[in-house]
Design a protein around this nucleic acid. Structure first.
Lengths: 208, 208
DNA sequence: TTTGCAATTAACCATTTGGTTAAACTTTAT
DNA sequence: ATAAAGTTTAACCAAATGGTTAATTGCAAA
């Protein structure tokens, strides 16, 4: 799925799939070995322990999650166009990787000690990068606001609004299906149609 | 915390607290017994098995979660006022019960078989109730829209937007703290200030 | 006070789980 | 061809975990 089929990446892919779906506690080493189609001892041969294996997988997913989140903002588009492009690409990304946000959020909640510095090292300073991108967006907003093109907003509010509207319905998929009585297909259409709903909502909030 | 201190409710409270924080897989019976200050065998004496105990706890939490969600909408306020009131009461509720939404969503994702009918029975038909409330709100919206007071919207969109904006920042607390470099106090203020941010965003989206 | 029942506990049990080991198999270099 | 190194496996181990049991304690009715 990810790389060529040497044993190490075979294990990595299996572990990623199992951890993503079940989380650290729910995932069992035997299940990962079975998924990879190899003997359980090989997991330890290549990755030493469950924690170590999880660490590698989690770092990779965290990078994937935030890299995708940072992408669109470094372009030369207007704020409104950036928001629109971000919604499109991030919703598409999540439709292909629906387990990632729940996994990231649960893991961050599960291992609060990993919080700051530890993760920062293992992920090429992903949080520092994130903060610098946010600062840049804030500057863009301030510029456009000063030019009278949009209402001034705090990047924290805009960002949290945006990712809340995008990510929550993915995390809460089972709940949303249940409350509204949707099947898999209804649900997927609902998410796709939400792209426009979210754009309208956010862009309207920037109009003066 | 919840009832008088007979052993049964002592166990229930301990189990609720441990399950809420760690989820089904992460919670250990011994830990629940220790939290309740009683012997592990008593858990089985009163509740037979981990699954049974979890079932009782989960049903109660699910009721709490949705009951609180349904409350405000049955009043005589205008849609805008209802939204505003809902945001206030639900944010306050979540600040006092920050683990509930993550727990509910994870459990629903963890046990998809419980989905429809099973839960419906154990929770006094909470989902049926939910759907009837949603229908009522949709009628109110249609009425106000026909009278030209607001823009017409689908209740599904309005509802998902609202709970996304409210719940996501609670579920993603560790992530938000990390990205924006907030401490516990910063974070709490951020959430409280978001009440107004969310109101502005949603009510603006209803203006013609 | 004694009898009987409910409540509580310490000790135990079987299974699961993360992890290890020693042997076997495969590949590579000489 | 063969030795050495790397790879893979079956069998095993200790700790943790959900659950049981038999004995003990507490308490209310007779």
């Amino acid at each position: 799925m990810e790389q060529d089929s040497n044993t190490e990446s075979l294990i990595f892919d299996a572990a990623k799939s199992v951890f993503l779906e079940k989380g650290f506690d729910g995932a069992k080493m035997q299940n990962i070995a079975d998924t990879a189609g190899i003997n359980k001892a090989l997991l330890h041969y290549y990755y030493r322990s469950k924690e170590k294996l999880f660490d590698v997988v989690f770092s990779q997913i965290l990078n994937q999650f935030f890299k995708k989140m940072g992408e669109v903002w470094e372009t030369e588009l207007s704020i409104e166009e950036k928001i629109s492009a971000f919604i499109d690409t991030y919703v598409d990304f999540l439709l292909k990787n629906p387990f990632i946000p729940r996994f990231v959020i649960n893991t961050l909640a599960r291992f609060p000690q990993n919080a700051g510095e530890v993760l920062e090292g293992k992920t090429n300073g992903i949080f520092t990068k994130m903060k610098s991108i946010l600062q840049k967006i804030q500057n863009d907003i301030d510029k456009e606001a000063a030019a009278g093109q949009i209402k001034p907003v705090k990047i924290q509010d805009l960002m949290v609004n945006t990712i809340s509207l995008i990510i929550f319905p993915i995390i809460a998929e089972p709940m949303i299906k249940m409350i509204f009585g949707l099947n898999q297909n209804d649900y997927k259409n609902f998410i796709i149609q939400r792209k426009q709903v979210i754009k309208d909502l956010l862009i309207r909030s920037l109009k003066k």
